[in-house]
Each structure stands twice: as C-alpha cells, then as structure tokens.
C-alpha cells in the first residue's frame, strides 16, 4: 500500500509538512485560521526532527502488523482491511497512550478534541489525508523529502 516515506537526505527542515498537516486537519483548511482562530488549535500529525545538518519528517507508517492497534485498549485503532490504513477513531479514543507507548516510530501524538461541552485529550496520527489524492505533507514538501509510495 502507498504510505508516506521520508527521504532524509532531502529534508530541509522547513516545517511546511507540519503546516500543511495542521491545515488539512483543521476545520477551515486555512493555515492562518487554523493557527490563529481555531480552538483547540489543530496539531500536525507529522513531526520534523531537526539536528543540523540532519532533518527528517516522521509520521505513521501504517504498519502491516501495527503495534498501536495491538496495544489499543478499546479498539479505537483498527486496521482497515480494505485500504490497509491504520485508522484512529478519535471519538472513541480513551487517551490511555498505550498506542504512543507501543509505536516504534514515535509517530502518534496527542491533540485536544472538543466533544460536546468537554474537551478530551486523544491520540493523533496520520490518516493519509482521506480527502486528498496525495497527502498534504507530500504536496507541501518543496524538496521531495516526503514521497507517497508503495514499497511493497
């Protein structure tokens, strides 16, 4: 299946993947409003590690045998048998962080999510942008340091 792979040798640490991810997963899909006015502020699901001269953007790899799915307490994380994608149901998530503990890539983060009147801290991970043909981070990367590929 196609997932996003980082190509470390070309990552220039511009953080635009993070901005694109945050924007794509915002209500307004506008970077300015996503950052300035949306409450709670959306959080990028990819993260740029930066140790000059090295940089790399890392997000969920949608593992065939996903350790996050195996660790999830209540089935909020599941593998979609049709697409192969690892899907997170944020409305169901208990915020127990078992997935964060289990993910060997450190690719699951946290986000505050409004549910009715309350705000819950829930897990947050790459969903490969279901509304887009190519994930936002890949489209935003100016140097092809992120590619959307099927490597078998």
């Amino acid at each position: 299946m196609k997932v996003v792979y980082p190509r470390e040798q070309w990552c220039v640490a511009c953080n635009l993947c993070e901005v694109a991810c945050m924007t794509e997963h915002s209500k307004t899909k506008d970077p300015l409003k996503a950052y300035r006015t949306e409450k709670p502020r959306p959080v990028s699901r990819t993260r740029v590690e930066y140790r000059p001269p090295l940089a790399i953007s890392i997000m969920c790899r949608h593992c065939a045998e996903a350790e996050c799915v195996e660790a999830c307490k209540n089935g909020s994380l599941t593998r979609n048998e049709v697409t192969g994608r690892i899907e997170l149901d944020q409305d169901k998530c208990l915020g127990c962080w078992m997935c964060i503990m289990a993910c060997p890539y450190g690719a699951i983060g946290q986000v505050t999510r409004p549910v009715g009147q309350e705000e819950r801290r829930v897990a947050n991970k790459c969903d490969l942008c279901p509304d887009r043909e190519v994930p936002a981070c890949v489209s935003a990367c100016p140097n092809r340091a992120l590619v959307f590929e099927d490597r078998g």
Binding site: P31, L32, Y35
Partner: peptide, 12 residues
C-alpha cells in the same frame, strides 16, 4: 498578524 510561527523562515 499573518505569521503562524512555523519557523520555516528561521530554518531557511
């Protein structure tokens, strides 16, 4: 007012 503190400019 338009800056979102993404720091792209800083790193570049």
């Amino acid at each position: 007012d338009k800056c979102i503190r993404c720091k792209a400019c800083v790193a570049q």
